[in-house]
Amino acid sequence: MNVPENLAKSSLLALVIFWTIISSVHFDQNVLLYVMLSFIPVCISVTIVILGTICPFYWSAKGNDVTNKQVFKLCFPYYTCIAFGLCSYGIVVSNYDLHFSAFCLSAFITTNQSWLWFAKEKTRIDDRI
């Protein structure tokens, strides 16, 4: 599993989605400065979420002769439905606050894409199959 590469790609994706949504409502000329500054908290959030909620599924499957694709097929539907429920709930509870909605949307899309990137990585079991 190439965790660092996944984290880097996911952080970048989250950053782009988050700022695209924010900029669509009020565009600030100094936005580039904020974007660069916000990369650090975005990176930290993405790392915590991916290491805490996605990687354990793949790590636990390592010793059981299960491929990443099988892990994805088995666990991803439940994960994404729960994530969708939590994000929707968060958006409604926050009374559709722009920043929180952008955060939830970027978190939802990024985690889903991160699952996909992990699933598409070739494992040793894949080679054996």
């Binding site: 991803f76 994404t80 439905c81």
Partner: peptide, 14 residues
Amino acid sequence: GIYTTVAGFFHRNF
């Protein structure tokens, strides 16, 4: 239905 609606794109991509 829920899975198709919220993550059909990712599933097909996979």
